[in-house]
Nucleic acid binder design. Sequence first.
DNA 1: TCGATTAGTAAGGAAGGTGTACTAACAAAC
DNA 2: GTTTGTTAGTACACCTTCCTTACTAATCGA
Lengths: 371, 371
Amino acid sequence: MLPEHARAHNRSLVLQALFHQGPSSRADLARSTGLTRVTVSDLVSVLISEGLVAELGVRPEGRVGKPATLVGMRTEEFQVVAVDLADDASLRGAVMTLTGAVVARRTVSLDGRTGDAAVGVLEDLCRELLAAADRPVVGVGIGSPGVIDASGVVVQAPNRGWYDLPLADLLAERLGVPVQVANDANTHALGEYTYGGATGAGLMVVTVGQGLGAGIVLDGALVRGRAHAAGEIGHVTVVDDRDVRAGDPEPRPCACGRAGCLETLLSLPALRRATAGRTPQESDAVLASVGRKLGVALAPVVSALNLAEVLLSGPPELLDGALRVEALATLRARTLPLLGQDLVLRMGSLDEDGALSGAAALVLSGQLGVT
Amino acid sequence: MLPEHARAHNRSLVLQALFHQGPSSRADLARSTGLTRVTVSDLVSVLISEGLVAELGVRPEGRVGKPATLVGMRTEEFQVVAVDLADDASLRGAVMTLTGAVVARRTVSLDGRTGDAAVGVLEDLCRELLAAADRPVVGVGIGSPGVIDASGVVVQAPNRGWYDLPLADLLAERLGVPVQVANDANTHALGEYTYGGATGAGLMVVTVGQGLGAGIVLDGALVRGRAHAAGEIGHVTVVDDRDVRAGDPEPRPCACGRAGCLETLLSLPALRRATAGRTPQESDAVLASVGRKLGVALAPVVSALNLAEVLLSGPPELLDGALRVEALATLRARTLPLLGQDLVLRMGSLDEDGALSGAAALVLSGQLGVT
DNA sequence: TCGATTAGTAAGGAAGGTGTACTAACAAAC
DNA sequence: GTTTGTTAGTACACCTTCCTTACTAATCGA
């Protein structure tokens, strides 16, 4: 650990405080970071010279003493490019401000391209978005399905035909801009933490889309796992022979080659198939049974990690009803009351752009140290 | 972050390298820590002046260049006091060297005392052990059941009658020695990581004793959880009405007030009761069924965290047979092959003194930054 | 014997943060 | 109106920490 690392850390501390608390005086920042006013002044002057921070004038409230000069992060004067690769058919991208507001959108079709051709499509989309930005771009953030390591190498993403592809380095070189890549469900969790106001003390975000994924944030940091595959809960078995004997329908075969995986019940295709043509009552019963399976599967995770919040991300009409209620009831019933009673199970705060916000959060985290 | 924090970090880096790699030259340390030889020399000279490190003479092997002077951590010249409070009837303590070798033991009976009286018994035991040490004592480490926060406050330990008790600070003041306190299952995990050679990239240690506990180490650090209750997997429900319909015996009532908790099947009393008077074949069948329940409960945790190792701690005659085999088979069958195939499920490397080693590891971690 | 290589140290410098002391600006009390 | 107390921000000297560079020491191999 070098002095410059400490410096970078303190710089992030200041930026983080400004990002989450909004405009503050240097003295406020000194109090909330634990640094001295002198050090904060120095850091702020550097940040101002870089354009990341600006003085906003004197604080209006009349308190005793010299009135404070507010400084704020210029979140609207910089932009990030965010790309969501979750969909198999098309790439969705956006230019966003640092607060996550969408400035411009682009969507391109993959037309079945994979491997290098898919990288080419992605690169073109990024170029188009970089050109669409009307402010300096801090970096490019990409949320992709698959297993991705901490340095942005796609270890495997079968649907894109990518294996051991150093996507972040490759795009950074071609685009001339910093690029961050991470698993889409993981970035989603980071997004809920950074933009959605979720706790960093024990957060799990369950993303229901074409498949089922999850991301976990503990102590403010993403959990990556031994093989960078943390969060892959879609293929936990939740229906087996014993469940059938107890009255469950036969387990459905799964794309992974097994049967009875959670993803065969809890994914958009599965939920739509299960509720299609049903009355609301019938649908609720089906959704409740899925919620129960989710609760059973999550109970050990909530217990082992003593999670504070579990968020669901996906269409509210499917998730935010009987499914969520039953999942929470099941979780409460199957965990130690101390653990379950204060647990929050709610819908994510980010809308359908959650994946993009997550990718943007990835850039904030990687380039500015702000989470 | 102050320069002195960076300094402390680098100091721990050097100690950690010496602890795990054994005697090394200053140049070796520079290479493995990433610091320069100059800085390492400086840090080593401080450590030598404190007596923690000593020069051991010239490295025997003849390589080109000036022969290296080996320096090593004086692990036998310092001791720690470790106490295990897992047992309801008595307190077990030991004086250990920094490598975890037991120098002296003491056990005292609680005789049913709780609350302040139990603290008194613990304090007396610590004094006795401190007196029994024949080398400078680095600190006192205590593994206790219950919920304990990061600063050593026992939030609740019902069996001892402790609630919001700042045990670490209290004993540190009375004994005049640094004191570290943590949950017994968590310290156990730390012990397996520090002394048992387990990975720090995703480790869970399941401790089977009077009850059932677990500790999780991710990225080299203990997971604490929102309410400091991480690892409390004993009261996850694993037998419910549906399981009964599928052929399971009726769920047993649990001390927590519910029924069908994992702890009602997987704990020493439960396992002894279930195997008492059975033939080996019958016992194995029972143990296998418990192993299956454990595997079902752990599958979501292994998947969500992408764990590398799960260790079992407890009597091998009960755990290291059908139970372990069936648990591993169940885990493999119920998780994504990518996650399950490389998963290791084995017995912990530490023997019956595992809890004490864990408490010692707590001191090493807290006082010297070595894990 | 001489060059190459490695270990370790000394000296100077750069970076980063603090402590102290100062000015500026305001509110409340007298 | 003046004084007193409080808060904000900055200037400057100092301390800590690490690095770079340059040096000595010790060994091997040609």
